[in-house]
């Protein structure tokens, strides 16, 4: 894509210009991901089919949480509670799933519903409190982070729940042509998220609120409703994330998910979504999550020490934000 193209697009219809910008934005992150893959492909095993399966498996939970986080960050919010809420959803679902005397299929179904309901509960709590009293979501979700963690410990008395139905366990490691089933589910969620954000009025209004909340209000939009909705959507995805965690690892425990929120935020930011809201996309988030996953995997294959690995991941996050600044200028030009 060169500048002539861009100029033509701008001269043309406004939608084409927007699309071009989006493509350009996404292309930048995509190129970064491809560059990373090329670098790592020099290490043996990196491109082997089993390693690709591994990377996709490892990306899945973060991807699902990042989709929800994108909705929240787009309206200028943040959700620090997702790791703790994931743990709470998992122990609730785990408790339901291991109830004695339930048919395995029924148990799994009820557990899934209960995880999502628990996620919605915390999402509503986050959204209602921050929207009603106009409290920064940073503070509210710092509170619910502790509430959810405490509740998870209380429910389980700090113990790990295990021994889920064999079919559920098998479902978690199912693959189609090397692609994990759980990742395919995450991709469907990406597609839904993309559709909602780009093809519906609801999605457009979310961007509008992130850009200028007052303007959105003056335009007659019920900002309160949209804010609560964004946090609730995030809650739904956390509930689904909890079920995916359980399917992958066959346990639920009140101490899982510590720091998951930071990985999700990192994926969203690397994916080009602005922390101040109003700008960004789900496709970017998908690429951001993949960059984090590829990096974590590739650095181990390279044989780098744990400490070096942590430092490099930090550098990449900062680099991504700096690159985003340039990309912003480019797309505005």
């Amino acid at each position: 894509m060169d500048t002539t193209d861009l100029t033509t697009a701008q001269a043309g219809s406004k939608t084409i210009a927007t699309t071009t910008k989006t493509v350009l934005r996404e292309a930048g992150i995509g190129i970064a991901l491809i560059a990373l893959i090329i670098v790592f492909s020099f290490t043996p095993h990196f491109l082997s089919s089993s390693n690709v399966t591994n990377i996709l498996t490892q990306v899945t939970i973060n991807l699902v949480l990042s989709i929800g986080m994108t909705f929240v960050i787009l309206i200028g919010g943040i959700d620090l509670s997702v790791g703790s809420v994931l743990s709470f959803c998992a122990v609730v679902a785990g408790t339901v799933m291991t109830l004695p005397g339930l048919d395995p299929a029924v148990a799994v179904f009820l557990a899934t519903i209960s995880a999502i309901v628990a996620g919605i509960g915390f999402g509503l709590l986050n959204g209602l409190i921050s929207a009603w009293w106009a409290i920064p979501s940073f503070i509210v979700t710092l509170g619910t982070l502790n509430i959810a963690r405490g509740a998870a410990l209380q429910v389980t008395n700090a113990s790990t729940i295990y021994s889920f139905p064999a079919a559920f366990n098998a479902f978690g490691s199912q693959t189609f042509y090397g692609i994990p089933l759980l990742f395919l589910i995450a991709l469907v969620l990406v597609a839904i998220g993309w559709f909602v954000l780009t093809k519906t009025v609801f999605g457009r209004v979310l961007y509008g609120i992130g850009n200028n909340e007052e303007a959105a209000r003056l335009a007659g939009h019920n900002v309160f409703f949209y804010k609560v909705a964004a946090f609730t959507i995030c809650g739904v995805l956390v509930g689904i994330g909890a079920i995916i965690y359980m399917a992958r690892l066959n346990i639920a425990s009140p101490i899982i998910g510590i720091g998951f929120e930071l990985n999700a935020i990192a994926a969203v930011i690397i994916g080009g979504t602005s922390l101040s809201g109003g700008r960004g996309s789900i496709v970017g988030t998908l690429l951001g999550a993949c960059i984090i996953g590829v990096l974590a995997n590739g650095l181990i294959l390279l044989g780098l020490s744990d400490f070096m690995r942590q430092m490099i991941t930090g550098f990449v996050i900062i680099l991504a934000v700096i690159l985003d600044k340039y990309r912003e200028r480019l797309t505005k030009a």
Binding site: S48, N51, N54, R248, I251, I300, L301
Partner: peptide, 14 residues
């Protein structure tokens, strides 16, 4: 648990 799963999968690839 989750980190051990990830780290060990990657070690096994290497």
């Amino acid at each position: 648990t989750e980190e051990a799963n990830t780290v060990f999968s990657n070690m096994l690839t290497a």
